[in-house]
Amino acid sequence: MRTNIRRFCFPASAQEAAAILARLKATAVVVAGGTRHTRTLSPAVETVVDISDLPLRHIKADGRWLRLGALCTIAELEKSPLLARWARGVIARTAGLGSNALARGMGTLGGNVVRAHPFNNLPPVFLALDAVAACVDGKREKTMPFADLLKPEVMASLGRRYLLTEIRIPAATRRWAAATDRLALTRSDWESYVHCVVAADVKGRKVRRAAVAVAAILPRAARLPRTEALLAGRPATEATAGQAASAAVSELTALTGASPAKAYAREAAGVLIRRCLLEAFKEVS
């Protein structure tokens, strides 16, 4: 490929990488797994900042958080024994959705999150599990709710002023019931038409609180607060799942502007949410 690259930097720390990116602005690009930029590089780029040496490849839990380093590959998330047990394995299962073993082995958590495609797999699961994103600039760390990270103005600053370093998921979600499902052309398709993730804190067959996140159907992954409010305090039954699915379709109709082109996707989202809820409820029964 014809490029205007003149140098490759291999920074030793996330702060150093962020400082280089901040200084060079649009003439620098950050590369980790490499699957994003190598084929779509802007001609403005003169410096490639390869962060693959940074120690951001951890999957560990402490009393407060489950911590996922931004350089974990999708395959590492998929195969992690810790994630296989966390929230009924929903992160591992989501990581295993779509694409192929080679791409999952190269692509990173950071790339999947920062690459602002609405169909990317990981954002809805992090949203549903109340994740917090940790980023660094050249000097200090900044944390924010994962939903804020997805805002276009914040996304625009990632890989420029900020570098995503870690996703933190509250320890309380470890025992939540959760499920994920998506509609895509084929099982291996990276892009989905609709992707839903449900996570619920269920005690004594009663939903204490629930999170419902959708992706692909909206410009960026989002939670459905009205549907979540309907679920709170309800019994974990098939009837509740059906009512929540109908509420989700109405909520999505409001969010997508009743576009006929999205009608099928909205109906599909309702079906997926119902399926996810039934799966989550079954697991706690």
């Binding site: 690259i5 490759f8 590369v31 490499g34 699957t35 190598t38 084929r39 490639v48 390869d50 693959s52 192929n100 073993a101 080679l102 791409a103 082995g105 190269m106």
Partner: peptide, 24 residues
């Protein structure tokens, strides 16, 4: 990055050599 025929092992892990710069 779709067909895997350019697969190599990079630090022991399979990688697509068509999807990374030589300098990486």
């Amino acid at each position: 990055g779709d067909c895997g025929t350019c697969t190599i092992l990079l630090d022991g892990k399979p990688a697509l050599s068509c999807m990374m710069f030589a300098a990486q």
